[in-house]
Structure formats: C-alpha cells, structure tokens
Design a protein around this nucleic acid. Structure first.
Lengths: 189, 189
DNA sequence: CCATCGAGTGATTGACCAGTCACTCACAAC
DNA sequence: GTTGTGAGTGACTGGTCAATCACTCGATGG
C-alpha cells in the first residue's frame, strides 16, 4: 500500500509515524541489529525517506527514546493522580502500578534495555541520562518521598526490566519466583 | 607476535585465552556490534581459527557469559566467607561488597548488560537465565536470607549496573546522587 | 498553463562481517 | 626421513546495511 504517489502528508506527521515505528522495531531488535529498512517498512515508507526525516540512524533512535521517556513520565503523573494528597509511599506505589500498565506491551521496556546496552554511543547515553533524570526527579518531587525510597523505586524498576526481558514468569522455577514475587509483571503481549 | 607458525599450543588452552578476549571485547561493544575479528585480534589469533575453536559467534558469546557467571558466583562465595556464621543481612552485605569489587573493571558488568539486551537470541537468553539462577540460588542458600531480602539484593545489583553503564558517579547532578547513594560503585577502570 | 516546492522513491555505493575452505607448517612417533 | 596429525592462516563468498543522489510525481499559486 502507499505505492506509487499515494497519500501525501506533511513531513511532521510522517516523522511521528516513523518514531512510533522506530519504537516498535528498535524494541524488538535493539539498536545495532535493527536496520533502518525495518523501521521504514513498518511505517510504510521507503528507507531513503527515513534519512530525509532524520539525519542519521542514531538520531532516530534518540527520538524514539525521548518519546519513550515522555510517555513514562506521563504514566507516572497519571498514577500519582490516583492517590493525590496521600503519603509518599502510597504515591510511589501508584506510580509503579501505572508504570507496570504502561509497559505491558513490552515495547517501551525493551527499548530502555536496548538503550542501556547501546550507551557507548554518546548521543544515546545522553538521551538515557536525560530521560532517567526526568523520571527520577519527577518521582521524587511529585511523591515527596525521601532519597532512599526513590532509589528503591528505580531499583525495582530495573528488576522489573530483567524479569520481563527473560520471561521469568513463565520459563522458570523456584529462583524465578523469588525474583518476580510481588512485581506487577506485564502480562505477555 | 605469534606470527607465522610460532608458539604452538593446545586448542584447549587457546580456547581459554579466546574466552578471556571475548569477555573484554563483547563487554565493550555488545554482541551485535563486536566482530569476531576484534576478539581474534585481542587473542592474537586469526579470525578463521576462532571458528575452529567455537562453532559460531553465539556459542563463543555464551561461553564468555558462562565464565562470567562462574566468576560472579565465586566472588559471592568469597564475600560470604568474610562473614561466615553471621546473620543473613550481614552475609548479603559482604556478598554485595565482593561483587562490587569483582566488577570494578566493568567488563563482567557490561557483559551482563549486553547479554540482557541480546536475550532475543534463545541461546543467550538460556545462558543468562542459567547464570542468574545460579547466582540467585547461591545467594539465598548461602546467606539463609528470606525471599524479600534476596529479591532486594538482585534489584540493587541491577541498579548498580545502570549506574555504572551511565557513569552516573561522574556526569551527573542531584538526581544521579539519589540513585548512586550508598552503592559501592566500581571506580572508573 | 506554467513554475515552484515539498513528498517520496529507486538505484547505487562503499564498507563491513559471519562463516568456509583449501592450504601451510611444526612437531612427534615410528 | 617420512608420514600423520593437529595448530593455525589467507583468501574468498554471499549477504547486509547506512547513507547518498538524482530523480518523479502531485499539489498549489499566479
């Protein structure tokens, strides 16, 4: 579809579509093993045009990451709204729940995992730090929790990533139950 | 060195050298962006011979991972020995310290991060699960700690990986201090 | 009706890389 | 000394991929 000269569109609208496609594709294969052509196919666009919308592969990846952290922050805000005015622990708990719901489809989660692994590319490391700063600072200021509670919040988020990456709630035995206990895990898909 | 027909060696000894080189190189670039030729160069060997020692790239990566988790388990055992007979919390604390020392050179840490990101390759996912099971079960049985304590132990290990990957103890500001607080971070290098 | 401009593509280039194969060379044992 | 074996390599192949460039097509405005 969208063969020879179909649906004209503005390049800004296209850029959004491409970013969505990039999130999905990069989440599947990671930065290095996802070709631009895969993203282009998902966005129903030629590979060449992706390079007209974004100057390079890495800048597209960064755009996807930025969007990812933006969505995460929004989710945290929504979660916090569910326990507005209550104590910090309760607020963080709701934020965690909202995060778990958001990453239920695993795309945003896997993108973060892959980004961490690709952090030897400076632009990517910067983007991850920027996003993590945003999330951490929001969690702290919005919940009013102390440093230790916030640290714990992020640490269990990382554990959650590990569990999901390895499908620990399916494949596994005793030890996996220990790690997954009480974590609101994203149901498959 | 080891140019034309020098130091003959047994293939088993060579395999060990190659695994060490693989740990270092895969830790730098990750699975997908590290060519076999880089590992071969580090081991002073031709790329072709690497494929005689290991049937494929992925099997070499798995061998490196297996060795990594073996070293981690050993470190935990040594740490536990330093607080032999004391309470579980204390034992876990010492094990954490020993782990922090082990990964001070970052190679073993980054290898785990990259492995998690490459877990869509089944052989790699299996190896990571195997290693994590070993570590988790050892930590639990050796320390005698409860499930929650063990879970927390692993979660903070993951946080430690994140901090080290992003160099959070250097680049950063307020929020980074929150995340790094109290973590025995690997000094650069 | 013509000119312009932006959306979008096909074809290509240059580099890199996993894996293969036929080969050489050192050493041992007879 | 010659023959067999295992260590180790050079050269190649088939494939992939980021990035570039010259191009086409459709809409819009005068």
């Amino acid at each position: 579809m969208t063969k020879r000269g179909a649906t004209l569109s503005t390049s800004d609208a296209r850029r959004d579509v491409v970013v969505d496609a990039a999130i999905a594709e990069f989440a599947r294969g990671g930065y290095h093993s996802t070709p631009i052509s895969a993203v282009a196919a998902k966005a129903d666009i030629s590979p060449a045009y992706v390079f007209k919308l974004f100057p390079s592969k890495v800048s597209l990846f960064v755009a996807a990451l930025d969007r990812c952290y933006e969505l995460v922050t929004h989710a945290l805000a929504n979660g916090a709204a569910r326990a507005d005015g209550e104590d910090p622990g309760r607020l963080l708990y709701e934020m965690g729940g909202a995060y778990a719901e958001l990453i239920a489809d695993r795309n945003l989660l896997m993108l973060q995992v892959h980004a961490q692994s690709a952090a030897d590319t400076p632009e990517i490391a910067d983007a991850v730090r920027r996003g993590l700063a945003k999330v951490t600072e929001f969690a702290r200021s919005r919940s009013g929790a102390g440093d230790e509670q916030v640290q714990r919040f992020i640490a269990y988020g990382q554990l959650c990533h590990l569990i999901a990456t390895l499908d620990l709630d399916e494949h596994a035995g005793e030890w996996a139950a220990v790690l997954s206990a009480g974590i609101r895990h994203p149901g498959k898909n």
